[in-house]
């Protein structure tokens, strides 16, 4: 099939997915107990006050009616106004998104580096104590969830050996007049490496907490498929040519063994992004996830909707990138 047609079909199915997500989140936040009006009014407000405020936010209409009004706005780029922060949702979400993207990307890079290195090392020394040691470490990394890793890291690197900052995104005394919200990228572009270092020091622990479980998954799966690939005929043939074990692993086996890991990494990366919600909270990192918790606590319906849609867009984009990378790495798929 022609690439453009494939892309259009993909775009269409993505739109349907996002619409479904919108319907579900819109309904669910209105059906669950607790409402924003109760959170806003002081104790002893009269029923008349409640009715007036409900009408102000359009919460007096039926859910389908509310949805149509909201969705019409979304199609025109208006995601509504946050009830608790009294600002447009779109601006709030886009303001926080870069911080989360930088954190999640950093975590992904760490997970790939740690997981990849552990898999390659374990395969290079397969059948020895080194492989056993790596298996044990992977088991530990996998069985401890990200927020618990966060707490452990705080104890190690925040309290016992205070190497890294435990809270926030940047030191308050270092506020550069940033033009964008992509602080890390901007600091590099503007050659302010002191700021970059400061940002990285803040990012290190939350990113590592998010990365460790994913690193363990990548490490285990990649090791397994590498070991299987190392037994295949073309790898054996390469050995007879005089290549060293390390060269054989990197040159012959890795590219073929990496495909299943790639798919799983894509799926697991979306879990990692979900994990930012609680890990950002733990480290008071000013990202989308941290804002999501506030939005839920305050029953800030428009903001919750906006954040969930934003996460959904990220998830589908990640899946698209995985599929494209898969096709690029596997020549057998290119003509299919």
């Amino acid at each position: 099939m022609d690439l453009l047609a494939r892309f259009l079909i993909r775009l269409f199915s993505t739109a349907i997915t996002l619409f479904g997500v919108a319907v579900i989140v819109f309904t669910v936040v209105r059906v669950v107990p607790g409402n924003p009006i109760a959170m806003m009014l002081p104790p002893g407000a009269t029923p008349a006050d409640i009715v007036r405020l409900k009408a102000l936010y359009g919460l007096d209409k039926s859910i389908p009616q509310q949805f149509v009004i909201w969705f019409w706005g979304v199609l025109h780029g208006d995601f509504g106004t946050s009830i608790s922060l009294r600002q447009p949702v779109l601006g709030l979400v886009l303001g926080r998104l870069p911080a989360t993207l930088e954190l999640a990307t950093m975590a992904l890079v760490m997970a790939i580096l740690i997981g990849g290195a552990s898999a390659l090392t374990a395969v290079r020394f397969r059948g020895t104590q080194i492989e056993t040691g790596i298996d044990v470490a992977n088991g530990a990394a996998l069985s401890i969830p990200d927020f618990l890793w966060g707490l452990l890291l705080i104890i190690f690197f925040g309290v016992l050996i205070p190497l890294f900052s435990i809270s926030g995104r940047i030191s308050p005394d270092l506020q550069l007049n940033f033009e964008t919200q992509f602080y890390l990228i901007e600091s590099i572009v503007r050659l302010r490496f002191d700021v970059t270092a400061n940002l990285l020091a803040h990012m290190f622990m939350p990113a590592l907490a998010l990365a460790l479980p994913l690193a363990a998954i990548i490490g285990q799966l990649l090791k397994q498929s590498l070991k299987e690939t190392m037994e295949l005929d073309y790898v054996t043939l390469a050995r007879t040519k005089g290549y060293s074990e390390t060269r054989v692993i990197l040159r012959e086996a890795l590219r073929n063994a990496i495909l299943p890991t790639l798919t799983l990494t894509g799926v697991q990366f979306t879990f990692l992004i979900g994990g930012t919600v609680i890990v950002e909270r733990l480290f008071s990192y000013e990202g989308l996830g941290n804002m999501a918790i506030d939005a839920v606590v305050n029953r800030d319906l428009p903001l919750i909707q906006g954040i969930v849609i934003c996460f959904a867009v990220i998830f589908t984009a990640v899946n698209l990138v995985v599929d494209l990378t898969y096709a690029a790495l596997n020549p057998r798929l290119r003509h299919a």
């Binding site: 005929d233 073309y234 043939l237």
Partner: peptide, 11 residues
């Protein structure tokens, strides 16, 4: 090698 179908690297 014995089996030409598996002795060349597919990628």
């Amino acid at each position: 090698p014995q089996d030409p179908l598996t002795a060349l690297n597919p990628s």
